[in-house]
């Protein structure tokens, strides 16, 4: 099995509700998680808006899917890379993002953070290190 594991990166560059990209990406991630690959998610440009806390869609008649990001740990998706420059450009900081954690079964179910804030240069390195990049 292990030799078949590929590195998949889902690149998210769109805000959550103006287009369907963000929700589609999340659904593909959840379905794709069944294939036991090495999955990472990248959030850059307007994609960082997907992870902000306090989203409330009641009045616009669409589903608020931001809580679903917190379920990703159950699907062994534990690497959410967020680009610092994209946050800065939008007047955001790490404190504006949801707390997203995963439970490490091998460490007595200790909760560990899934979000990792990285620089643009580090994001470029991560992109260059993938077998497959899926863009949304």
């Amino acid at each position: 099995m292990s030799e078949d594991i590929k590195k998949f990166l889902y690149v998210n560059r769109k805000a959550p509700y103006g287009t369907i990209y963000a929700l589609e990406s999340l659904e593909v991630v959840l379905i794709g998680a069944a294939f036991d690959q090495d999955v990472s998610l990248a959030f850059l440009d307007d994609g960082v808006f997907q992870l902000t806390k306090g989203q409330d869609t009641k009045e616009i008649g669409v589903k608020n899917f931001s809580p679903t990001f917190r379920a990703l740990g159950d699907y062994e998706v534990t690497k959410l890379f967020v680009e610092r420059e994209s946050l800065d450009e939008r007047g955001l900081s790490a404190d504006d993002l949801q707390d997203i954690v995963w439970e490490d079964e091998d460490d007595d179910y200790a909760e560990k953070p899934s979000i990792r804030i990285i620089s643009r240069a580090e994001m470029a390195d991560i992109m260059a290190d993938q077998d497959v990049i899926l863009s949304f």
Partner: peptide, 10 residues
């Protein structure tokens, strides 16, 4: 809590 029904293995 998460706005999805979990996959069966989850």
């Amino acid at each position: 809590e998460y706005q999805i029904a979990p996959a069966v293995r989850v």
